[in-house]
Design a protein around this nucleic acid. Structure first.
Length: 249
DNA sequence: AATACCCACAACCGCATCTTT
DNA sequence: CAAAGATGCGGTTGTGGGTAT
């Protein structure tokens, strides 16, 4: 089988693998556009790259997925969705293709049936009364904080509740470990991708270029419920529910 | 034994993003 | 700054092997 440019397609044979391996061992990974020529292969660069990354690379684990790996996939998928490369990045020796295939052949059905089961359970029965849902609030702080700002932290890019006088920072629960270390926030060992917490989760400031992106002057009273600026109910519906249910598969 | 079906996984394709010119 | 090329990613398909009928 050949493509329109006369390049070979379809399954790789032993000799081709050998050539590709030798090429990568000699020149290293990368510069994929040069690989077919260097290796003497009549394959397109994409095909070479894929063959190496998904099959020939010595780092690849060949054995079946272990319990803890499956558990990790389920949790990460709940957090990240179909971002297979990110998920695979947390599983040493596994490729995105492996994870994706495993998901589609083994886990998808399980997850779908579990969801349906849950839906069935949660179906309101006629005898049940409707309950008011109380939405979570991020923080309840005591009074002696003085003047507070939400500050966009320089290296972390996360808004923190900052005390003017002491320069101490108090952060919403889920990202406490980020503000303290100036690193990416995480849930356990799993780093939360930048775009999740910067754009959808914490991006409630209007003025991105400014250090101060919001302020709260109502902190004079004893015990208060702090409200983040520009955050509507859907913020909590989407983000908090998602995080809290992450460990409950 | 023949056929149909299912599963696992390798491979392809199109698109988005990044890098270089 | 724009265009072109390179790279990476996710969705989908193709194929071979195993199992059921």
């Amino acid at each position: 089988m050949e493509n329109t440019k006369g390049r070979k397609k379809g399954a790789w044979i032993y000799e081709e693998d050998k050539l590709l391996k030798a090429c990568i061992n000699k020149y290293g990974e990368g510069k994929w556009h040069l690989v077919p020529q260097r290796a003497g292969l009549n394959r397109c660069r994409k095909s070479c790259r894929l063959r190496w990354l998904n099959y020939l690379s010595p780092n690849i684990k060949r054995e079946s997925f272990a319990e803890d790996e499956i558990d990790m996939i389920l949790r990460l998928h709940k957090l990240l969705g179909n971002r297979w490369s990110l998920i695979a990045g947390r599983l040493p020796g596994r490729t995105s293709n492996d994870v994706k295939n495993y998901w589609h052949t083994n886990l998808l059905k399980k997850v779908v049936s579990k969801k349906e089961e849950k839906k069935e359970k949660e179906k309101p029965k006629e005898t049940m009364k409707m309950h008011e849902v109380i939405k979570p609030r991020p923080l309840t702080l005591s009074s002696n904080f003085g003047k507070h700002y939400f500050v966009k932290q320089q290296n972390c890019n996360v808004p923190i509740d900052c005390d003017d006088d002491t320069e101490t920072a108090r952060v919403p629960n889920q990202i406490a470990n980020c503000a303290s270390s100036n690193s990416q926030p995480s849930l356990g060992n799993i780093p939360i991708p930048f775009e999740m917490w910067s754009d959808s989760l914490w991006n409630f400031g209007e003025e991105v270029g400014s250090e101060i992106i919001g302020s709260c002057s109502s902190l004079q009273e004893k015990n208060f419920n702090m409200k983040f600026p520009n955050v509507d109910d859907s913020f909590w519906d989407f983000n908090l529910c998602d995080f809290n249910s992450l460990w409950d598969i």
